[in-house]
């Protein structure tokens, strides 16, 4: 999930490459053929995808943090089991995506190091805190809901390994959204205090979730190449509008109010939202969101504290391999 906001186009260096190959490549894309790892591809296509897929992977991994925060405090065993399974899924999604990114030629170690060094980004949404249990419901309902909106078109992305990873991810993500909405339904049918908690979570998450779709089409300078290469199939604003239209009736069912007094339904039935505060988005992307430093510190700590496990496993594997070679020589 969560990559669109971060897409930046590469400098177009295709002029330097074999023009015939580039034309054949574009013809394959236009014919809806999938590009596979060993196929010829323009360097900028490789670079764009490596960045997009690895950022997507980092987002899945960092995305485990805000929710992991509530595993020990889930209100019932049923909720705890579901949340644990969901966080485990996010880890799995990160791993499918790292594997897809690696087929483009960078090692997982390099990709992870770039994230830990602060050189690679992850979705800005995970820089917001999860203050109450209602935030867990809201994340499932809205953050995963927005991610699904974003990821379904990626199942038809021109790069085979990415598209295949997305198909698996989308299947699993549907459970995430439903479990989140179930939490919201339960809170909204509960005491006045519980319903107020649900409303408060919606108030805090609504705008950051809309920002997940990335800058408005008018100012997003980078979509052209991605669209031409069929990495991206819908614009940021198209997906955002689809999400809003799908979400408003769900909020109405819950009896919650979307924190946008200016929102109106137009003649075609679309819910038109007010202007988004893009300064906030830029601030969070620049590292100044409420939790940016915490998230990075948690990732670095986990990586460092896991070093001995990686070393032990590597040493053990080397020792076993050595013994096997020695036995074979006897």
């Amino acid at each position: 999930m969560y990559t669109q906001a971060l897409n930046m186009a590469e400098t177009d260096d295709r002029g330097l490459e074999d023009a015939t190959k580039a034309a054949q490549f574009q013809a394959r894309i236009d014919a809806e053929e999938r590009i596979e790892p060993n196929d010829w591809m323009p360097a900028a296509y490789r670079k764009t995808l490596t960045r997009q897929i690895s950022q997507h992977a980092h987002s899945e991994i960092v995305g485990m943090l805000p929710e992991g925060n509530w595993i020990t405090r889930a209100p019932t065993l049923r909720r705890k089991a579901a949340l644990l399974a969901k966080v485990q899924d996010e880890c799995g999604h990160g791993l499918y995506l790292y594997a897809a990114a690696e087929t483009l030629g960078s090692s997982r170690e390099e990709l992870v190091d770039a994230m830990l060094a602060g050189k690679a980004k992850y979705s800005s949404i995970f820089n917001y805190p999860t203050l109450t249990w209602a935030d867990i419901g809201t994340i499932g309902w809205l953050v995963d809901g927005a991610a699904i909106m974003n990821q379904i078109p990626l199942c038809r992305c021109s790069y085979g390994p990415y598209a295949r990873a997305m198909i698996r991810v989308c299947k699993e993500e549907s459970f995430h959204q439903r479990q989140g909405y179930e939490i919201m339904v339960t809170l909204c049918r509960g005491s006045g205090e519980q319903k107020a908690m649900a409303q408060d979570a919606l108030n805090r998450w609504w705008w950051p979730v809309l920002m997940m779709f990335g800058p408005p089409d008018a100012t997003s300078q980078h979509s052209d190449t991605s669209t031409k290469w069929k990495i991206k199939r819908f614009s940021n604003d198209e997906l955002r509008q689809k999400f809003v239209d799908a979400t408003v009736p769900q909020a109405q069912y819950l009896g919650l109010t979307i924190p946008d007094p200016g929102m109106v339904q137009d003649a075609e039935g679309h819910w038109r939202y007010s202007e988004i505060d893009w300064t906030e988005f830029k601030q969070v992307l620049a590292g100044n969101g409420p939790c940016n430093r915490d998230r990075m510190a948690a990732r670095r700590k986990a990586h460092e504290e896991g070093a001995w496990v990686r070393e032990a496993a590597a040493t053990y594997a080397a020792k076993r391999a050595q013994r096997q070679t020695a036995q074979a020589a006897e």
Binding site: L95, R164, R310, A313, A314, Y316
Partner: peptide, 11 residues
């Protein structure tokens, strides 16, 4: 179905 990283076959 996909790939993964592990230091040996058991893992």
């Amino acid at each position: 179905v996909g790939s993964l990283h592990a230091s040996d076959a058991t893992m």
